[in-house]
């Protein structure tokens, strides 16, 4: 579904991503693991067209998307949930949804706020409240829901569990699993294994902008050497 081939991305003169390649099939949930500053967010932003890779190719459903504008990539069916929430603070929940709303793609479903409120029951009671007056966990739910309004086929989730209380993290995991069961393809960036284990089938490990490991979650869990080398517990 998504193929990333030898992506190189710079911030100014700093060479951040070095020949990053990924291969994700339809329906999979893949974890992109790595420590602080490893390049997870940079990878996602490069896929999304928010950063312009200097070289490399990204293909989505057989179509080259590297070089396209972000909005175009999003309209092809890739949803992006950024780290650090980035809700539109001055907009209400419903208005945040309205910004994320896209026309359904051919033969696809159309997401509605009513449906999303089933997935995120908390949000319903505060649908007219400005996002600035919501808790961190609620805001995180809102960013995911907002992206789902665009009916994505592939969802990029950048550290959705970051900074959330353990109870909320569990709830988040349940919600994401529910999403997964609807057939949506997932890429999830994470710093530690625990949360990824709840959701992902496959894992890539990135370190200093290079992919260092690729395998199933089970293999990774059995490979203490790799885990200790690249991941924090």
């Amino acid at each position: 579904m998504l193929t990333v081939n030898k992506l190189n991305t710079f911030y100014g003169r700093a060479h951040i991503l070095r020949d990053v390649s990924l291969d994700i099939s339809k329906g999979e949930a893949v974890a992109l693991l790595g420590r602080n500053g490893a390049g997870k967010s940079t990878t996602m932003k490069s896929i999304m067209g928010l950063l312009k890779p200097a070289s490399g190719l990204v293909e989505f459903e057989g179509k080259t998307i590297s070089g396209l504008k972000s909005y175009h990539i999003s309209r092809l069916g890739i949803g992006y949930v950024p780290e650090e929430r980035r809700v539109f603070a001055g907009l209400s929940v419903l208005e945040n949804f309205a910004v994320g709303k896209q026309k359904p793609r051919q033969g696809g479903m159309e997401q509605t706020p009513e449906n999303l409120f089933k997935l995120f029951p908390n949000l319903e009671s505060m649908k007219d409240r400005p996002a600035s007056q919501m808790s961190g966990g609620e805001q995180q739910m809102l960013t995911i829901a907002r992206t789902l309004m665009g009916n994505p086929k592939l969802l990029l989730l950048d550290e959705p569990s970051e900074g959330l209380a353990p109870l909320i993290v569990e709830e988040m995991a349940r919600t994401i699993l529910q999403l997964k069961s609807t057939g949506i393809t997932l890429i999830l960036s994470e710093q530690n294994l625990r949360f990824a284990n709840l959701i992902a089938d496959k894992a890539y490990i990135i370190e200093k902008g290079e992919i260092r490991y690729k395998g199933t979650m089970d293999d990774l869990n059995n490979n203490a050497e790799v885990r200790d080398a690249y991941l924090t517990l």
Binding site: K69, Y71, S74, Y80, R86, E95
Partner: peptide
């Protein structure tokens, strides 16, 4: 209006609006 919501959202965070599929 939805247009208004888009404009206000873009005032806050243009990049995010683009990533949600809005032609800036």
């Amino acid at each position: 209006t939805r247009w208004g919501a888009l404009v206000r959202a873009a005032t806050e965070d243009r990049e995010m609006v683009a990533a949600l599929g809005v032609n800036q």
